[in-house]
Design a protein around this nucleic acid. Structure first.
Lengths: 218, 218, 218, 218
DNA sequence: AATGAATGAGGCTTCATTCAT
DNA sequence: AATGAATGAAGCCTCATTCAT
């Protein structure tokens, strides 16, 4: 069952691989335009022009505009969480971490490049998730739920070790995610052009999380 | 100068007051539709139908669809931060707070109802801010800057009192805001229908922030 | 019968006189806008704004937009030809002229100021005459026909005196009118801002007409 | 330089050639409607219906309603004056004319059919030239200026030969053009349905011009 | 007499999608 | 596989006109 899930995810990603040259031009153009203007305000002819293909060509490869959106967003989102859910991968979970801090650091190190490279798509995802039920369903089934399950285990593990306050798991996740996402959002979307010292910021961010979650020490 | 700003903001809000009955029906309908489908995917005829007015009536009151958006979003955003920037108001800042926790609690108590009541508009704001330069300008001038200034003072105040770690002010603000917004977002947008114990969640959230920011005690 | 015609024309002009202050503001504004943008491209709200009245006020005084146009154009056109058709007036026709040249000079002297003052309205007339049957009917009945009749008599008179070549009357009128209108058009519409020596140009123009029409002298 | 101009004009006309069948239906319909109702009072849906195409098809070929107008008017106007400005063409200018009368006769013979065939477009041009700056610019650059230059030379030539009164060139042109245009206008626009003897009228018109311009013979 | 809010028809234009080539 | 002309529905907005105040 679990196996099946990661198979499905593998398939989603593999389908994304076998693309012709025109196709990848279309995808590239669509990502740029969707992320700059939003899905609804981007026309297929705009994408075609930017991709250097005929309008009809888009519809030869993607059933419709919505389908093009899903083809862009879904594989990237699954890849984003792949290290958390893929068995057999050399993931961050396969190593044993002594502290919750180490764990966080490892995740961030592992995913921060991927996020930077796929920022436009993540932006599109955040913008569009509310408006497209298809996206929401994919998201819940392939991303949110598997991810939550894995994190749940990890957090309980560190709570058992006494490193994390005994708050409800979802509160811990929410706090951690908020802080991390808040940093990445500020870093890459609100002030992408500021002069950031990424290593220092990440360390500070992790410290704030660990401090926040550390059990009363008396 | 500072006085002038709060005057401008007062004006923005007052202009929003003198509305006919049809006008407020239009606003109400637009808020609902914009927030459900997004600005670009909401048609003015849709709004007119839901408001029970002729489509032309919308354009008698708002010269543009864009203008309608701004008329909805800008006054609400200034009202949201009004307690922080208005002089002469009985704001959360006029009282002296002994601890940073008390300060946070006071803010959240003060603003949480407003946020709940204006959730749709805040959602619209978050969705559209990236796509509308006019919105961005209003936001920077009337909201982000004044708010930052006030918070900066407050945070330095509590850093001087030794309650908050000596991190850069913007880091403190980012961490605090991320955590608060992360809670509100989860509470009202991701899982609005869950059975929330608001008081307890707010307390926990504040504790996480205070813990996170508390200076090393050794 | 003839009497009736000049009575009708008198009535048209008198009706144009009893106007309230708002009415004349509307007329003034309409003239300016119609002549600048054309009838079809001028909106009644544009006129109202420029006139400083409410949109509804226009329709209190003029049944509709078309009616406003007619109220502007028709009286002016009848006034333009009034000296030619009004009995009892001290017209250019009442004096006896020795030569066709004197006659032309007298007409031009008499009408040139009127034309200059009513240029915008004449422009509107020329633009709109093709598109409005009502205008065409008024024009034929009250302007073209009476005018032609009078000119016919005059021209036959000078042909009998041997001053004008024995061409068909309509040819003489066409040639004369073309030359005069051609001058006025160039003078006031094509190059209104050039530095014109009006007296000299008028004299030259008349000379060209007289030369053109002078019988072979051999 | 001069070469460049005639190249540009050639290009304008050639672009007008490569038209699909639907395109020429659109043009045909637009000409008829624009000339019957005026540009502003003709709707694109009206044109589409008359052309038997979808409204959207118009905008695939002409980015604007305005652009459609220009695509109709500009090439025809340049073609109208082509014989005057095109080098290498077998124009009326290439032959030597003994008299100004022969010159006028040649021009009229040459252009009268073209005018008759393109009457609707010329009407549209005259109606719309005042309201469209783009049209005015094209007109000045490609039509009025080159035409004036050529005529100037010709007129000075005949003035030197003593056939034409020593009036300012622009006065001669104005008088000649007024008389010719006055005839054509009466012939084709005011009374198109009258029973005209074209050859006789043209001869008379030319005689009037020549007489008008002939130097005093004493 | 004057106002101006309200209307709804219609105008120009864009767009996703189809289909013949 | 790729093109791009064609479509017609729908979008935003303007307008002449009406009517309650």
């Amino acid at each position: 069952m679990e196996q099946k899930l990661s198979d499905k995810i593998k398939k989603i990603n593999e389908e994304h691989m076998k693309v012709t040259e025109k196709q990848s031009k279309i995808i590239e153009a669509a990502i740029e335009e969707f992320s700059r203007n939003g899905y609804a305000s981007t026309s297929t002819s705009q994408i075609a022009k930017k991709a250097g293909v005929a309008e009809g060509t888009i519809f030869r490869h993607y059933k419709n505009k919505k389908n093009l959106l899903l083809s862009i967003v879904t594989p990237t989102m699954t890849k984003l969480i792949a290290p958390f859910v893929m068995d057999g991968f050399d993931t961050v979970f396969d190593k044993k971490f002594d502290t919750f801090g180490d764990f966080l650091k490892a995740i961030l190190k592992n995913r921060v490049d991927f996020i930077r490279e796929n920022l436009s798509i993540l932006k599109i995802f955040m913008q569009e998730i509310s408006f497209h039920p298809e996206l929401q369903e994919n998201y819940k089934e392939y991303i949110a739920q598997p991810l939550f399950k894995r994190l749940e285990n990890t957090i309980i593990h560190f709570q058992d070790k006494g490193q994390i306050k005994n708050l409800p798991v979802h509160t811990v996740i929410r706090f951690t995610a908020s802080t991390v996402v808040g940093f990445l959002f500020t870093r890459h979307i609100i002030y992408p052009d500021m002069n950031w010292n990424d290593d220092k910021e990440i360390e500070q961010t992790i410290n704030l999380i660990i401090n926040g979650l550390s059990p009363e020490t008396d």
